[in-house]
Nucleic acid binder design. Structure first.
Ligand SMILES: [Mn+2]
Ligand SMILES: [Mn+2]
Ligand SMILES: [Mn+2]
Ligand SMILES: [Mn+2]
Lengths: 195, 195
DNA sequence: ATATATATTTAGGCTCACCTAAAATAATAT
DNA sequence: ATATTATTTTAGGTGAGCCTAAATATATAT
């Protein structure tokens, strides 16, 4: 069984691999998890023994295939719960992350598959992030960054790359409805759109 | 903040007080929680310091008002989640307890109040147990044990006092629908009914 | 009342997941 | 190439929540 701490490490490593390429440093992990670097070194050594990651001393870590699958299952749960909170319980998109951080650790395959059905098999979460399927596969994403569009282009807003509550609240205030025409946003590179 | 372990202790103490009166013994608690009695002694001493319970050495424990309120909030969450699992996710009544045991520990008042609304403010859970409101108050219960009825009486089945999965599955097989006429059950005292 | 059985507490220890301080290693600047 | 700085690891330690074995207190039987 994988512990709460392990799940959080796996998710953090996954996200850092996504953003900054293959290998993840101790300090990057420590910063993301808000855990002391010495503790991180300790913990990743144990995770390596369990084959959740590969670890090269003083170099960094990378998810094993097993570790990657677990990380994806956590991300799947997180995003499905966010959809539920927004679509069924009427939460705003800036109110769901902390709650989903807790719900993502509930263990039950039946639960998550029933939830998926209940929600109508959504492909993306309220922030536009793709939801992996039960086997960890993503649908392909046809969205493009807002900066790839010219002024005057008509396009559909589907999600954000920046997830801070303050930015989400800013967008909510600035933009009146979810599906709408887009315009240039002062915060560079923070909105993605699709045709 | 109250930890997962504390929440489980509080809930167990509450249930034992309900059933066997005021004061709860170390061994009863140890048995219910499947934790060694020595560990329980240790833990309840700390809970007493935090004023969650009162504790008299070698006598037993009793919930403080604060402890009782926390216990009730856990029970409220447990039962609301069970309603959700059955009514919205199509689980059977014998499949929800273990999942609710996890969900009951998720912390968010907004979440639980939204959930309550989403479910239409149910008064009872799928097993007929009353759901306390946000302030820990129960509606009054007009149901009566099946044994208080005579053969031939017409009555409405509303819930069970015995919660084991095997018994729930037995009932599901034996009784075809949720609202129905009742008859004597071989398992004494295990069904409650109301007019 | 005394012996026996049962329940409870004390004492000492363990694992998990964290910490700080110091040492070692790697990266960067001169 | 050497000094300085930043990163990573090692060493030692902590608290939460559990354990077993032994000691003590309580209940029951004779
Ligand atoms: Mn999120
Ligand atoms: Mn999201
Ligand atoms: Mn239950
Ligand atoms: Mn129930």
């Amino acid at each position: 069984m994988t512990s709460l701490a392990e799940e959080n490490y796996l998710k953090a490593i996954y996200k850092l691999q996504e953003k900054h390429g293959d290998i993840v440093s101790t300090s990057a992990l420590a910063e993301m998890l808000e855990i002391n670097a010495a503790s991180v070194t300790d913990f990743i050594k144990k995770m390596a023994v369990k084959k959740l990651i590969s670890y090269q001393k003083s170099k960094g870590v990378r998810l094993s295939e097993q570790g990657r699958q677990i990380a994806l299952s956590i991300i799947r749960k997180h995003r499905l719960w966010e959809v539920w909170l927004v679509n069924k319980l009427n939460f705003k998109w800036d109110e769901v992350h902390e709650i989903a951080e807790q719900l993502e650790h509930v263990v039950s395959n039946e639960l998550i598959e029933q939830l998926d059905e209940h929600l109508g098999y959504p492909k993306t979460d309220p922030h536009g992030d793709l939801i992996p399927d039960a086997k960890g596969r993503f649908a392909k994403n046809s969205s493009k960054p807002l900066l790839d569009h010219k002024v005057g282009d008509k396009t559909k807003f589907v999600g954000v790359a920046e997830h801070s509550n303050s930015f989400l609240q800013y967008l909510t205030k600035t933009i009146s409805s979810w599906a709408m025409n887009c315009w240039w946003n002062p915060l560079r590179n923070s909105i993605t759109v699709s045709r």
